[in-house]
Amino acid sequence: MTEGHDSGKRGWPLWEVFVRPRRGLAHQHVGSLHAPDAAMALRNARDVYTRRGEGVSIWVVPSSAIMANSPDEKDPFFDPAQDKVYRHPTFYDVPEGAKQL
């Protein structure tokens, strides 16, 4: 068993998937999936999001790598530390020992 590394419990990281359905169009965000690494993420994305042969080109990006603004917020570029795709707690690594986060 892997020591101190409850990855089975924690689960594989989340990836965002972008598909360009055909030549001439831009990539479009189609959803997300879990995969242990980029190679598997690409293959899983092909199976999940292009089963009907819809995709020509696939991009996968770790969700944690995406930086975002939010146009509707008070100041859309206020705090870079806040600029993640999803605002909520579970997507960020909380430093060990940090309380009340």
Partner: peptide
């Protein structure tokens, strides 16, 4: 679980 852990362990090694 053992499969998922293995995949994660491999990714970490890489």
């Amino acid at each position: 679980e053992w499969v998922r852990e293995a995949a994660q362990a491999y990714a970490d090694k890489q």
